[in-house]
Design a binder for these strands. Structure first.
Lengths: 227, 227
DNA sequence: TCGCTGTCAAGAGCACTGCTCTCGAATTTG
DNA sequence: CAAATTCGAGAGCAGTGCTCTTGACAGCGA
């Protein structure tokens, strides 16, 4: 990004990037067990030197998590074609699943079980909100109707929507919330092996469910078949 | 269960149980970082002695995973009141969430991201199938109608249903699959902190979504409101 | 240009981990 | 009773995250 002025700063940014890249690489190959020493070794430096760039293993993890949220956000936003809401919905869901399948360990980092001794800092909520934001924008653009909600849920949804620049009706927000948890529930099930023996590979099931969710949200063009 | 005949066998079963209990306890308190040495230390034995009972850390993990699946299965089956399908559905979903909230680390063990170097053996699929089996039984008992499916998905669903003693129509099976991934997607989101700032606490949202899913499955008494 | 200051890589070391091996002691079996 | 099996304890290996100290280098003002 911004080329630091002094040579030191540029070198520092470069090394920081190399560390994260190597950590990502090890995450992808050696399973999810991220070892500081292994990363340092593979970079030709000694482990203690790495602490100049990341004060602890958790900080490296946090950096990777934020990068992962942003990468997923980028992929989803780039895949949004605009235009017909139902097409946007399908494209965005497929992009989310595609990114998850291509970066399963990074996906596990952000949507899997929390790391043992790790507590996600506040810095992650911004990047984490990018995907749901796109989903809400689709519902908003489709001018989807309201629907009755239990009071407690209605208050919670209204509270969240109040922080956004766009404001679909609360019922639509709740239905998007259902669709959102559905989509990522399916992706997690597929990636974490819960679907082996049933709907695995899950392409057909995913597409089918995505269309059902479009109907739940109320996107025009998505009709619920017969029953 | 079966009291082994010899004193040795009884002692062995006893110690094995104590190890698993202590491991569960540490899982619940110290986060998810399970340490063989810590378990052994807390039991007043030396770490190497533990290997007489579990040949590796992964085997201990496997035992805990199977136990967790069975505990969840027990909780869900016990909560099934029989009678009206919609009531069964609500009770079973609430029981699954209740168990997950009360045993979050054990839940993470079975529905979270896979353990780094760990590969789940075949022994887990039986206990893992207990919950979805109950869900399918509810749809079957409700005599829920079929619905059109894409060919690939239809084949996969038919393949799974063929292995079961009961056989609801394929469309119903697919809709149960949606509901299943939805329910556990929500539980995972709630437990893994993805819902903080939106629908957390998730009681209201969970109940709302469970009723929506009942409507999708087609359980009588569950109507989709207005839109 | 010299010298100061802050940054960096390297190494040793601590406490911890999973796991293996060996060695006596206890217990079950023949 | 003797032989065979099982078990707990201890030492030890290779690995981990992390801290501290040491010495080298770069950038700055004088």
């Amino acid at each position: 990004m911004s080329a630091g002025r002094t040579a030191r700063e540029r070198a520092r940014a470069e090394v920081t990037r190399e560390i994260k890249d190597e950590a990502r690489r090890q995450l992808a190959t050696d399973g999810a067990g991220l070892s500081l020493r292994a990363v340092a070794r593979s970079l030709g430096m000694v482990s203690s030197a790495l602490y100049r760039y990341f004060p602890s293993r958790d900080d490296l993890l946090t950096a990777l998590i934020i990068d992962a949220y942003d990468a997923l956000g980028d992929a989803v936003e780039k895949a949004d074609p605009g235009g017909a809401p139902i097409e946007r919905w399908r494209a965005v869901c497929a992009a989310a699943r595609g990114w998850a399948l291509a970066h399963r360990h990074e996906y596990a980092l952000i949507y899997g079980s929390p790391i043992p001794g790790y507590q996600a800092p506040q810095d992650t909520v911004g990047p984490a909100a990018r995907v749901p934001l796109v989903l809400i924008d689709i519902a908003h653009a489709a001018d989807v109707p309201d629907s009755p909600l239990p009071d407690v849920l209605r208050e919670q949804v209204v509270g969240v929507l109040a922080t956004l620049p766009i404001a679909p009706p609360p019922g639509a927000g709740a239905r998007v919330l259902i669709a959102w948890t559905q989509v990522f529930g399916m992706i997690s099930f597929e990636l974490f092996g819960q679907l082996v023996g049933s709907a695995d590979p899950a392409d057909a099931f995913f597409g089918y469910a995505v269309d059902r969710m479009a109907a739940i949200i109320g996107l025009p063009g998505a009709e619920w078949p017969t029953p």
